[in-house]
Nucleic acid binder design. Structure first.
Lengths: 250, 250
DNA sequence: CGTTCAGATGAACGCTGTTCATATACCGGC
DNA sequence: GCCGGTATATGAACAGCGTTCATCTGAACG
């Protein structure tokens, strides 16, 4: 508790080292995920890239999963940006379902386009399945993740209020939507050998079915044949800090 | 290829050692997953339980992921049994949607009831994300897994043929159903800290929405309030070889 | 009996997450 | 200006991981 503030100006440069090096470590870890991929996210590698010893990481994070959680939180901003961009893009659309469709396809496209980051955020297993204490029992695992989910939930609530969706608990519907999207991304990442149908057809079918399933009048996205064909050109629009990494193209 | 058969009776005990020890290793690995959990599935532990050295495992499996694939294949029979039991149970039901609902809830219940096995089968990441060659390029990763999926696909095709589901490619619909179910199970396993809605509500909402979304007439499972409430008593009916493992209850 | 050879092994390599005694550098108090 | 204390950082070490390899064993064959 160095808040005693050594009289005056000495407190500041010390403070910078305290919290800032933590951010610096997270930035190094983030860069490793982006450039070398998920498998390379190792304590020793992070330490090496951050220019510190491996033991020093344990001054800022109690263990590996805590660092991973911080990295996930940092990586989340990419998904959040894609989310927001999709919402803004579809804002003028009078059809409220189109907004949901935009959000869903944004989620799917981001996950499929950034599989390593997605694995860190949503597919890192809890170490012991049973061996995880909630830590500070008030704060959730990923703050910005919670925020993103609540954005989805708010969108769902709006749809229900306007009578577009059948009356239901917005939280349950939002969780189901999230889970469905996650399942698609996760399976495509984990089982690339499976003879999947074309991705556009899969994404379109999933989004259309869910929209139809939750709609009050049973209407899908477009009720037509190619509900998710118009987008597909501007897929890379939301990339903010892509980084070509060698030898891991696909 | 020792089929030369050393004259007579000597061939048999040799043959037993060849293919049978492979099965024995897989059985040991399976028992480890069931009793000690997913995290304990390591080469050295499997070897120790199987009564052989760690290096001996590499006489039967080229590397760890191949062993995991074999274990996954072995564990799949539990899910397959739950699948079949659900189908048989719902066979008398005249409503074809009920069959699909039974299959979906069987999948979800099995996955949520056997999280360690589920992680081996569906959530083990491909080692390098890019570093996986298809090996023998004709055989899929998990034979019985493929069979199970084709059972689902056949069920979907039947629904489409009878006009219950809207006309569509059965494979895409089956993949979407699988992905949605997987997403629910995977997220509940990976993110147990998230403030999820009650599981019954989640499962019911998901199953109903998908049924409604793919149905030709937009009809859900029961169109009522609690579509998944009648089952829930006979959840443990399909357990065939449960094994109470110490200290990992939840 | 001697040879051969598949099957099994112990030891080793390089890596992992994590801990701990030790060293360094900076700080307030004298 | 110097001293003692305290946070910060480190190298070395531990146990365990997947994997490889030279070596050993034991049964089958001529």
């Amino acid at each position: 508790m160095p808040g005693k503030a050594t009289r005056a100006r000495a407190a500041k440069p010390r403070r910078r080292s305290a919290e800032d090096r933590r951010r610096q470590v997270v930035a190094a870890a983030k860069r490793i995920v982006l450039r070398q991929g998920f498998e390379a996210l190792t304590m020793r590698r992070v330490a090496r890239l951050a220019g510190v010893s491996a033991a020093a990481l344990y001054l800022y994070f109690p263990d590996r999963v805590s660092l991973m959680a911080a990295v996930a939180d940092a990586l989340f901003h990419g998904l959040l940006a894609a989310f927001r961009a999709a919402l803004i893009r579809a804002e003028g659309n009078p059809d409220p379902r189109a907004r949901l469709h935009a959000v869903m396809t944004a989620y799917l496209d981001w996950g499929l386009g950034h599989p390593d980051e997605y694995r860190v955020i949503f597919m890192t297993p809890i170490t012991g399945v049973a061996g995880h204490r909630p830590g500070p029992p008030g704060v959730p695992a990923a703050p910005s993740g919670q925020a993103t989910f609540q954005a989805l939930q708010a969108e769902v609530a709006r749809l229900i209020e306007r009578g577009v969706f059948r009356p239901a608990e917005p939280q349950v519907v939002a969780e189901a939507l999230w889970a469905a999207g996650h399942g698609l991304v996760a399976l495509l990442i984990t089982k690339p050998d499976f003879p999947w149908s074309p991705r556009e057809a899969l994404v379109g079918t999933m989004a259309d079915a869910l929209c139809r399933g939750f709609s009050a009048d049973g209407t899908g996205l477009r009720a037509g044949s190619k509900p998710a064909a118009q987008r597909g050109e501007d897929r890379h629009a939301e990339a903010d800090e892509r980084d070509p990494r060698p030898g891991r193209s696909r």
